[in-house]
Nucleic acid binder design. Structure first.
Lengths: 308, 308
DNA sequence: TATCCTTACGGAATTCGTAAGCATG
DNA sequence: CATGCTTACGAATTCCGTAAGGATA
């Protein structure tokens, strides 16, 4: 048994049991991959993969049991490197953050500015992607930290911490009839075509729930991933917008008006997530603490300890 | 990084940083050991060991951090083999139990008889040793299960379960004056020379506590590891004995009388212990459940999951 | 027929053990 | 001067990539 064999097993599962892909992903030859798998199965005395003829189709029962331990071993091997790096160069290294447009554009800039000032030697990579991709990246070990409002809770392999809670708001052109209402209602909003976030983004599910709960059907004429697009179409007069309020800038968005809707939509909690059982470098823990008040950089590592 | 290097690191710590011993323990050459350590340190970019000249003295700070993860990786590698064996031959394998004389002689025979009937293909090795050695064996992965009344609690790397609770009893020659007392007292016992267990064995600490708490000084003329020795010397008239009551057999020990002392000594709880984070084969879980009613063979593995 | 896996084999790289050298108590 | 670690080097083993062959959709 060696690490390469375990890497191949892990990659085989991740790549959907296509050994050619696995070989490419690990920069090695396909026959080598094939042989390594066979050797490992021989050594363990158990078939790990279900085969039909020469094709691999999935994991056998023992394979399913074993894969979890394989993943933990490889994660721990990576942890060894991280711990060593931590001691070798405490304030140097890299940090990969996976997050959504909304966070990257509105919530994180100030934090990242501070972080960069504190840790100028850390190479910070900000991956902008969908909440589901954020989870994928964390699970695959491609990102150290994920920040999003959706999809993060309910993934048992992840530990997450609340960052802040906010409510959707409505944006309309400055002279829009809705600005003259004393207080917004869901009925009043539903009377107009709506521009808002895509499904699975920035609390969109909570918007749908609110209207569904009130028995209102809404006409969503356009959905976008980011508030910049939404604002643009609201200015153009396509409809009214529902966005996260931190995306509104009174100066830059002077053609629009922001109407509070806290009483209409359930609160959204943006969360920071980390894969259980991974070792976070000190600067990564500090970053997490800057993003979420629920993170204590001293005790975080113990919280992560239990590898599920 | 490879498994051999990690094995060498672990063994170096266990063998007190003597690389010659490490090489012998791992059946390899000493220069190879030396090189492997150096290569790993180079790869990680950190010194793992404190050296004076050419001698290794101990772990550096990074070494101390890393060793825990190294141990977990190697434990997980062993777990891979155990899981595979579990599927390859469900009722075949080996089980190593480390326990004390008292358990091996009086508590376990019936359980082991049942276990052997149920799993005739399992090679069962019963290691009789001191409670402290039991802990050592569990920590080193040399035993799967440990059973003892002392030393087990308070070791964070172990999970333990209560098996049964009992109180020490007094044995005396059949016609001894103490047999005519309506109820024993510590004072009455302390008036005679005493034969009982060694320190660190079979609840001896509780005996000392009881006398110390009552302000009684006692004359322990002989201490032994097992009740057979104690009984022999009581029969000879060397003194009165304090033993675990399960060691008394009314038929075989017809020359002796057993006097209850439940009201005098604190209760002892015999416990079963397993190293956290190890995978136990199904038959091992069944064995644990036969020994301790607190063990549920179905959920045991999850209890062990959290590797401290 | 194109994709995908296995077997076979030769070369490269790694690992291992022996021998020799040096430091420490 | 005996114990213990390092360096050096040749042998054995392992690992890897190319080439060829066979199975499946």
């Amino acid at each position: 048994m060696n690490f390469q064999q375990l890497r191949i097993v892990r990659e085989t599962v991740r790549r959907g049991f296509n050994l050619t892909e696995v070989a490419n992903a690990l920069y090695t030859s396909q026959p080598g991959v094939s042989k390594h798998l066979k050797d490992l199965e021989d050594e363990l005395g158990v078939e790990l993969f279900v085969r039909r003829g020469k094709r691999l189709l999935g994991l056998t029962e023992p394979g399913k049991e074993l894969i979890e331990t394989v993943e933990r071993i490889l994660r721990d091997a990576q942890n060894l490197r991280s711990i060593a790096d931590q001691f070798a160069s405490r304030e140097q290294g890299s940090l990969t953050v996976a997050t959504t447009h909304t966070q990257a554009r509105y919530a994180l800039p100030e934090i990242i500015k501070q972080f960069k000032a504190r840790y100028p030697q850390v190479h910070l990579a900000l991956h902008q992607c969908s909440p589901r991709e954020i989870v994928e990246m964390l699970l695959a070990g491609e990102a150290d930290v994920g920040i999003a409002t959706e999809s993060i809770e309910g993934v048992p392999e992840l530990v997450s911490f609340p960052c802040y809670t906010w409510h959707h708001a409505v944006i309309v052109p400055k002279d829009h009839p809705l600005t003259r209402l004393p207080a917004l209602t869901l009925e009043a909003i539903a009377a107009y075509p709506i521009v808002t976030y895509h499904e699975g983004f920035t609390g969109r599910s909570h918007i749908d729930e609110a209207f569904a709960g009130a028995g209102q059907s809404v006409d969503i004429v356009l959905s976008a991933i980011d508030a910049d697009v939404i604002k643009t179409y609201v200015e153009v007069g396509l409809g009214i917008g529902i966005i996260a309020p931190m995306a509104f800038n009174a100066v830059k968005d002077s053609g629009l008006a922001l109407l509070s809707a806290e009483h209409l939509f359930p609160g959204n909690t943006t969360r920071l997530a980390v894969h259980r059982g991974v070792y976070l470098r000190d600067y990564a823990r500090q970053f997490a603490a800057m993003v979420s008040p629920a993170v204590d950089p001293e005790t975080l590592q113990k919280t992560l300890g239990g590898s599920a």
